[in-house]
Amino acid sequence: MNPATQELKPVYQEMAEEVKLYGYVEVSPFVTRVKIALNLKGINYEFIQEDLDNKSPDLLKYNPVYKKVPVLLHNGNPISESLVIIEYIDEVWKGVPIMPNDAYEKAQARFWSTFIADKCHPALFKAIGSHGEEQAVAEAHELLQFLENELNVKGTKFFGGDNINLVDICAGYIAHWVVAAEEALGIEVVTKDKFPKIAEWCGNYINCQVVKDCLPPRERVVAYYKGRFGKA
């Protein structure tokens, strides 16, 4: 091999794998999802902090539809929406899998992650915003019971089995953000007595090193909820 070509090869590889993540580092569970997926794969990336009150021209260009974070930029190609980004990461980079290989199990992972994102998260946010109002909490509990049942049926450490997968990453909002909100506001939404399997899963998830490395500091999340919902 020509020595000159040999010297240029690492530079070319680095340029070919340009990865940038546009996000809001403070408390966003959606940006954190993507950071965990990148961490799982061992991908080096540049994090670009966005001011959500003064969004950058790049963010508006790369996500003109929703105009929000996260946005992953890979070799100049933008991908938006956290769950879409995570599947993209799993398809592009090999190594630790985030999605199951089996077609049925993959469909199930998509089903449960969508259920959590579209149903559980809004209900939990409503319960938090209402300061634990009885009806709002009851609505959240009705949805969480499906997750409790799924963990019981699986009988595994994580929704993904012995290792975390897309469903676990999506459900991370419960393990870190909801628990912090409970502390901030002095309320109980996800109780250990009612949801023992979810409570056990929460402990397993936040103590997983690849997750722990990416979580925003708990005190910051607590402060966020105190600031946003601290006054009834």
Rank of each mutant, 00 (worst) to 15 (best):
M1V: 13
M1D: 10
P3M: 04
A4H: 10
T5I: 14
Q6E: 15
E7N: 09
L8V: 02
L8I: 04
P10E: 12
P10N: 11
V11W: 07
E14S: 12
A16W: 00
A16Q: 05
E17P: 00
E18L: 06
Y24F: 15
E26M: 14
S28T: 01
P29C: 03
V31Y: 08
V31D: 07
K35T: 06
N39F: 01
E46H: 05
F47L: 12
F47E: 10
Q49W: 04
D51N: 15
K55W: 09
K55D: 04
K61I: 01
Y62H: 12
Y62E: 06
N63D: 12
P64R: 11
K67R: 13
K68E: 02
K68F: 03
K68I: 00
L73F: 01
H74M: 12
P78M: 10
I79C: 10
S80Y: 03
I86E: 11
E87W: 05
I89N: 12
I89H: 12
V92M: 13
V92D: 06
W93N: 06
G95F: 09
P97A: 10
I98P: 00
N101E: 14
D102R: 08
A103D: 05
E105N: 14
K106Y: 06
K106L: 12
K106G: 07
Q108A: 15
A109P: 02
W112T: 08
S113Y: 04
H121T: 15
A123E: 11
A123W: 02
A123M: 05
F125Q: 13
I128L: 02
E133W: 00
E134R: 14
Q135D: 07
Q135C: 02
E139D: 15
E142T: 14
F146N: 12
L147A: 11
N149S: 13
F158D: 09
F159L: 00
G161E: 02
L166I: 05
C170S: 15
C170G: 03
I174K: 09
W177G: 01
A184W: 02
L185N: 01
I187G: 04
E188Y: 06
K192T: 11
K194R: 14
K197C: 07
W201S: 10
N207D: 13
K212W: 03
D213Q: 14
C214Q: 15
L215T: 01
P217H: 07
E219Q: 01
A223L: 11
Y224S: 09
K226Q: 15
G227V: 05
F229C: 05
G230K: 03
K231W: 00
